[in-house]
Design a protein around this nucleic acid. Structure first.
Lengths: 346, 346
DNA sequence: ATAAAGTGTGCAACCAATTGCGCAAGTGCG
DNA sequence: CGCACTTGCGCAATTGGTTGCACACTTTAT
């Protein structure tokens, strides 16, 4: 005599409710619905009944219970300094799509580079049983106790795969382009010290510059300090730089937003872009093509990087071997912000 | 005779392990650590021992087990069409910071406006025991069975709070500004039909236009169709519009990125901005101030909207009463892309 | 008829945390 | 000296899903 279970009781359909409804045990139902090998031992007729009832009662397994028992949460932790306009958002979007497409969700924690939060958030995410981490522009001091993939990380740590841009190639593309246009006096904008690409990129730029016989000393250099991805970050720094040096004919910016700020700053100081100064950006954000002038820039294949990062992490979670570093190639996109060098002295 | 538990067994410290270590029952420890009223009945000495051991063994309660038992996950589901450059990313960032600051995390699902995903993702998020939803630019057909707050939603649904911009004021600010500059022939860009602000904004624009004696008929209007937040979305539409109408002296764009695309398109067609055509944007994204010309725009207080949305949802989860609609005020930011109307005919 | 083999099913333990109930001491009062 | 009351604390059930193992029942072989 099957007990009658009121539909009003509780809300979601649990395994037990289904079991009562079918006059079977929760165990049997679990076996059938999960299709484990042993399910073959259960008669087709019973299996059909189970599937039908599950559909009818709209049964959805409780994720927390599953996580607890199976020790798999199908959840990834993402650590980023912030979700900004530009690069970071595009990465996050592509990472998210890949993960959701493969049955995973993600928790994002934005730490703003605060050391205390960089300690705390990975811990909290692990309490929430994330299975691994993806780091965006985030430098860790200690290795994490879980598999991790870093985009634009440069430190080799145990259990960490770095997905990095080929900065040597990027620097070469930009500098060769400017050199071909006749530029010899190039100003370089260094990224903020805390930005994880800054050091690597600067090293590559110096090497490429030497090879092309272009000076890249302190004189030709200034550094961003304010955090963030906004033209505000570079505008005042360019103004300041112009006070000590005016005879450069090209500028290689740290990213597109700082290039936009630089263009503005140069124009406000009376320089035309590209007639007086050529400007090269970095990243190729969506609006780069629609600036005035449109930006010549080094395109980071951010979508590819995001997919590689997500795929690599899932591979590791499924016990595949993955490399410690994966290099991706940038591309030069020539637009209007660079032009022939017209200065006679150069 | 207490069992000896090797520290090698398992990884994280569970309540039971702590209990074995202390030779107490898990229940007692739970009572003390959670500070429920009954904890007062347990002697201070025992409590001190418990706290000390918890710290020493680095005890962290398992979130999945808590969620299962307490039916509270401290997790919010966020539904957005995409995480784009611009507006959406800024909102997400501010929402995330508020939530994390209040002990909540969030799962993001980007649905790309696909109807099947708009059905599926809320369900999956609910399986993952989210306690409520925040919707960004997402139109629902059915009410959700959980508390929800929509940013830029305009449909009244049960259990839903809408955080919306005062579009009447926004339209008035933009049109009054253009009218004061002498513009009478204004072209209007309508948002994509699926964008949740489009209809509301267009209605407000029409009203404001009538009051100012400015025509806002079909003739003066064109509509975006491609999805996304990129200048690409508007560039070809402006080109097309220019084929049928050329005598407007101002353009009110749907957002900053479409304004950027429009400026570009106008210039490519031989119009100077703002000398021949003034352009007003919407949103005031970070780079708007650094365009050339810098964009006059209607600033959405996105940070405030994000915080209000997050706060309102948490209030509802804590059984406070909240309004069905919350209006926030935009602000006119005058920059270089608008100027005096010089056309004689107007 | 009886054992062996084979088939279908469900009990109970487990995961980790929480909580009602009640056991077992200790204290006070008559 | 005994009864009642308080205090301190632990047992066991609960949450929902998964899984090892045992049990029952049927079929086949001897």
């Amino acid at each position: 005599m099957p007990r009658r279970v009121g539909k009003a009781a509780g809300s979601a359909t649990s395994l037990k409710r289904l079991a009562d409804h079918l006059a079977l045990s929760p165990g049997t139902i679990s076996v059938v619905l999960n299709g484990v090998p042993r399910a073959g031992e259960i008669p087709q007729k019973t299996q059909d009944r189970i599937f039908a009832a599950a559909k009818k009662l709209n049964y959805r397994p409780n994720h927390a219970a599953r996580t607890l028992k199976n020790k798999r949460s199908y959840t990834i932790g993402i650590l980023a300094p912030e979700i900004s306009e530009g690069y970071g958002a595009l990465l996050l979007n592509a990472i998210g799509e890949y993960l959701i497409g493969h049955g995973y969700f993600y928790l994002v924690a934005t730490h703003g580079r605060r050391p205390d939060l960089l300690e705390e958030y990975p811990r909290i995410l692990m309490e929430r049983s994330v299975e691994g981490f993806i780091l965006i522009d985030t430098a860790l001091k200690k290795p994490l106790p879980l598999p991790a993939v870093a985009i634009s990380g440069h430190k080799r740590l145990a259990g960490l795969t770095n997905v990095v841009l080929d900065h040597d190639l990027a620097a070469k593309l930009a500098i060769d382009h400017l050199a071909e246009l006749g530029h010899k006096k190039i100003a370089f904008m260094k990224g903020q010290t805390f930005s994880s690409d800054s050091a690597e990129r600067w090293r590559s730029i110096q090497q490429a510059a030497i090879r092309s016989g272009i000076p890249a000393s302190e004189d030709w250099t200034f550094q961003l300090t304010k955090p963030g991805f906004s033209p505000e970050v570079s505008y005042p720094m360019v103004q300041q730089f112009l006070k000590k040096k005016k005879d450069f004919t090209a500028l290689f910016a740290y990213n597109d937003f700082s290039a936009i700020g630089a263009v503005r700053s140069l124009r406000d100081a009376g320089f035309r872009v590209p007639e007086d100064v050529s400007v090269v950006g970095f990243d190729d954000v969506n609006s780069a093509a629609y600036q005035n002038p449109s930006l010549t820039t080094i395109r980071q294949p951010w979508k590819k990087m995001a997919q590689i990062a997500a795929k690599t992490l899932l591979d590791r979670l499924n016990h595949k071997r993955v490399p410690a570093e994966i290099l991706v190639e940038p591309e030069l996109i020539v637009r209007e912000s660079t032009g022939k060098c017209k200065s006679k002295s150069s």
